[in-house]
Write a protein that binds this DNA or RNA. Structure first.
Length: 152
RNA sequence: GCAGCAGUCUGUUCUGUCGCUCCGGCUCAGGCCGGUGAGGAAAGUCGGGACAACACAGGGCGCCAUACUUCCUAACAGGAAGGGCUCGCCGCAAGGCGGGUACAGCAAGUGCCACAGAAAAUUACCGCCCCGCAUUUGCGGGGUAAGGGUGAAAACGUGAGGUAAGAGCUCACGCGGCGCAGUGGCAACACGGCGCCGGGGUAAACCUUAUGGGUUGAAAGGCCAUGUAUAUUGCGGUUUCCGGCUGUAGCCGGAAGAUGGUUGCCCGCCGAAAUCCUCCCUGCUGCCCGACUGCAAUCACGGUGGCGGGGAUACUAAGGAUACCGCAAGGGGUAGGCCGUUAGAGCUGUAUCGUGAGGUGCAGCCCGGAUAAAUGACAGAAGUUGGCUUGCAAAAGCCGAUCACAGAAUCCCGCUUACAGGACUGCUGCCUUU
RNA sequence: UGCGGGGUGGAGCAGUGGUAGCUCGUUGGGCUCAUAACCCAAAGGUCGGUGGUUCGAAUCCGCCCCCCGCUA
């Protein structure tokens, strides 16, 4: 029964410490911060995503209790129709929302804050499951990068 | 029943889990509860408005747009009804039905009409006819536009008269145009009558006529925060003359009137802005002292205004200071918030008026408001549809389709374009049954 | 959001109603021992699409598609 399996999966995730919400404070809305991110941020590819992130040093812009602010974007060049762009962004956001807990705990343990952007670079429409897998991989790599930087 | 054409409407639903936007309520807070949430095209940005800022006595020219009539509308290049023209089908015909239509004027002027052709608009190559000279084919002058050929298009058509040959030159019938009055119609127009005329096409060629049009767009605009921009620099100016009143400081009227403004140009018109007179110390008092956020932005310091007190200095409009007005130049900085912003040419129902687009009345309802931009993801079920299997059929089972076009960005009315499938209406044709 | 410009052989561009052209490139031939240059010749174009106006449209008009640019 796939329905039961799906519900079980969600219930197990609910038992985690962090809730699965995705509020406005977790999204990157500040114009100048976005500019700074694209200007100075570090980037890597996890096909079909390009991820750019920037660690914030002082607590200048973000509120203290928020570990990270994120932004999802799809270039108009690859997807001409607004419907397609909206859908891809929604899928990305959903995958991030369900898998961000690990990143948050890692950041809190390192006492760091982060702004990051996911850019969808493929011309094809994504499958949800595939997108979720790739975003998980990207988050793992992100955690790896952060912890390595602090240790070195 | 099927096909074609034209038009109208609709365009997936339910359940569970986890989420998002806005609104309301509760909570010290994390958060919780309730409600709410894409389209017929939200698209293209092609018309027109609302709204906003700036501008604006008025007239002429220019520029842009529109173009059968009447009506609808806030308005439109939109729509409705009607008329003309045209195409298709049916019919022997009269006519009927359906589709299309940028449909004012070339008979106001100017331009253009390749090639061909004599000539593309004051035509004359071949031809026909007359006269003169040669008397042989021909040459010269004139008349003519019926015939020939060219072309997309050749100077009303047919017949008769007429003539040297011919020609609307004349006549009959017909076709078309203009004018006049008549009948029907609100009108476009239709019908028949009289008179005159026969002028090719092209205005999606310039143009003419009529009508309309201020410019810029929510990145408008308002408030707040930040910043040295009310910065700074240059030029010019904050009047002159006349008359009257009169308290001699001004007031009233007229003329002139810089830089300028008025839609691109011209005329014309508009067009005038100001106060003060040193500095220091001190008391009381008012205001400012971060928009947002937040339960809360206070006090003090500092700044500034008012009313006082004290001290020093100066002695009166020559001048000085600051301020203001217009034009030109002008490097950089801020990149945030709130309002505008969603109750509206609104939606639903109903009655009524109208052929119709639509109008009016009554009742009920509140129905997105985001801003790197919410309206979603997953799972299941139903529906639709395609394929396969079973079955005479009805139907059943399995597999598939992330199930048409597509996502609000100030709002509204239209137009245009995209659109799986489904429903309905009208007309035409064919077939079947009665 | 508001607006502007453009689409013509393989490439870059002319052509504003009357037979679609130029330069480079391509192909064939010549010249040369050979290549380049040079000379001669040839091929190659639904003029972005689709309707309309006109005797006639790349050109004029409507609608649609695509590309580029400006506006913070």
């Amino acid at each position: 029964m796939p329905s039961v399996a799906g519900e079980v999966r969600l219930q197990t995730m609910q038992t985690d410490m962090l809730p699965l919400t995705f509020k406005k404070t977790e999204r990157l809305c500040h114009r100048s911060l976005i500019g700074e991110l694209f200007d100075k941020g570090v980037s890597f590819f996890e096909f079909p995503f390009k991820i750019i992130y920037l660690q914030l040093d002082a607590k200048d812009s973000l509120a203290a209790e928020i570990p990270a602010q994120v932004l999802f974007t799809v270039p108009k060049r690859n997807h001409k129709k607004a419907v397609a762009r909206n859908r891809i962004k929604r899928l990305m956001r959903e995958a991030y929302r369900l898998n961000k807990a690990e990143l948050y705990t890692a950041l809190q343990s390192e006492n760091k804050q982060l702004v990051l952007v996911f850019i969808y670079t493929n011309r094809e429409m994504p499958e949800y499951r595939q997108a979720e897998r790739k975003i998980k991989q990207a988050i793992h790599r992100l955690i790896h990068d952060i912890t390595k930087k602090t240790s070195s």
